[in-house]
Simulated assay, not measured.
Amino acid sequence: MPANKKYLTPSPWQRFAKITAAIFGGLIVAILFHLALASWFNHAAVIITSTFSAFILWAVLMVVAFLGKNGWRVWGIYLLASLVLFVIFYFGNQV
């Protein structure tokens, strides 16, 4: 049974934005989240834990990217989250 046309994204640019946000944006947010944790807590414990939790977080962020109506808005949210996590990582690394 084919998908209902009203649920499909009509624009190829929106489809491109959702796919790239899911793959690259989700990966960036997942990695920066664990880097921010590692800069504030025990490095070894966070790195060992991140082998599984980074993949799970990335998969969740991929699903979230496809749930949004606008792919460019998802990219904006992921870039803003990446910026916040980078600032946390940067100031945590100073200690």
Rank of each mutant, 00 (worst) to 15 (best):
L32C: 07
W40E: 12
L35P: 00
N42Y: 14
L80H: 00
F16M: 11
A81K: 00
I56L: 15
S82C: 01
P12I: 09
L35Q: 01
V29R: 06
A3P: 06
F91K: 02
G25L: 07
T20Q: 09
W75R: 00
F66Y: 15
L57C: 08
Q14Y: 01
F33D: 00
V95D: 13
L83N: 10
S82A: 13
T51M: 10
M62E: 01
V29L: 12
Y90R: 09
I28F: 09
A22L: 08
L67A: 10
V64T: 03
F33Q: 04
T51E: 04
I48C: 05
I48Y: 14
A17K: 06
F41K: 11
V84Y: 08
H34N: 12
A81Y: 01
W40R: 14
L85Y: 09
V63Q: 08
G26D: 04
N4T: 05
T20A: 07
I31T: 07
F52R: 03
V95L: 10
V29P: 11
L57R: 03
F52P: 01
F91D: 08
A30Y: 02
L67F: 06
L67M: 13
N42E: 15
L61H: 03
L83A: 15
A36F: 05
W58R: 10
N93R: 15
A38I: 04
T49N: 14
I23V: 06
A22G: 13
A44N: 12
L57T: 02
R73F: 08
V95I: 09
I47M: 14
F66H: 11
V87C: 09
I28K: 00
F24V: 12
S39I: 08
Y78K: 02
K69V: 12
L32G: 01
S53Y: 04
K6M: 14
F66K: 01
F66R: 01
N70S: 15
V87G: 01
V63L: 11
